[in-house]
């Protein structure tokens, strides 16, 4: 592996195989916390932290603890470990930076139930990534998640003030917007050849 391949993984996960826009994972926080730009940024930062750590740890567990004969424990142990990391992160952030804790607030524990956070370690196993690749894949995936979340929050803030028929207001226009955004992200598909 050389530096170019790592760069390809990063760009590929952020734009081409964006976890929200292309893989349609993590829809719950994508719609849940995208009403305000501020909360979207907070959620993005928290997810990036946990997901990078989580994919690294999950790789280690899968490689050295589970192996091939205990592969059926993969999902279970990943969930347990991610929940543990989220708990640890919450305590650490609270201790290290009360300001950041106030910004992230409720979003930290919410990450536990974010399916993208479980999805990326499982995709890592499927793609047979090594340790550094797993870390990069986790980081890139969560940056992609933050990117689409923040873009979507910006759009939704604008849409709040838009004059539209009552039937489209709220979640319906959000769904339509997400669909159009997903179409737009398909434009990246030819950028990197897998």
């Amino acid at each position: 592996m050389n530096i170019q391949d790592y760069l390809l993984i990063l760009i590929g996960t952020v734009f081409v195989n964006n976890i929200v826009m292309a893989k349609i994972l993590g829809m719950c926080p994508f719609f849940g916390v995208s009403k305000k730009l501020e909360t979207a940024i907070g959620m993005g930062a928290a997810t990036t932290f946990v997901l990078t750590l989580g994919s690294g740890t999950s790789y280690l567990i899968n490689q050295y603890l589970l192996g091939t004969d205990l592969a059926y424990l993969r999902t279970l142990s990943f969930i347990v470990v991610i929940a543990g990391i989220v708990g640890f992160t919450e305590m650490f952030v609270r201790w290290a930076s009360p300001v950041l804790f106030r910004v992230l607030g409720i979003y930290l524990p919410l990450i536990t139930s974010n399916c993208a956070v479980l999805g990326i370690p499982l995709l890592n196993v499927q793609a047979q990534h090594d340790f550094v690749q797993s870390l990069l894949y986790g980081f890139g995936g969560s940056v992609g998640f933050s990117l689409s979340l923040i873009l979507f929050a910006g759009l939704r803030e604008r849409l709040e003030g838009a004059d539209m028929p009552a039937i489209f207001r709220g979640t319906s226009i959000a769904m339509i917007t997400a669909g159009i955004m997903s179409l737009a992200f398909m434009g990246f598909a030819g950028m990197v050849k897998p």
Binding site: I61, L65, L66, L70, Y72, L73, L76, S77, V80, V81, G84, G87, F88, M91, F92
Partner: peptide, 19 residues
């Protein structure tokens, strides 16, 4: 399997308890 899950649980419990 039981050993692995117990080990994970003990490790996580220790880490969280220490934290």
């Amino acid at each position: 399997a039981i050993l692995v899950m117990s080990l994970l649980a003990v490790l996580l419990g220790l880490t969280l308890g220490y934290a």
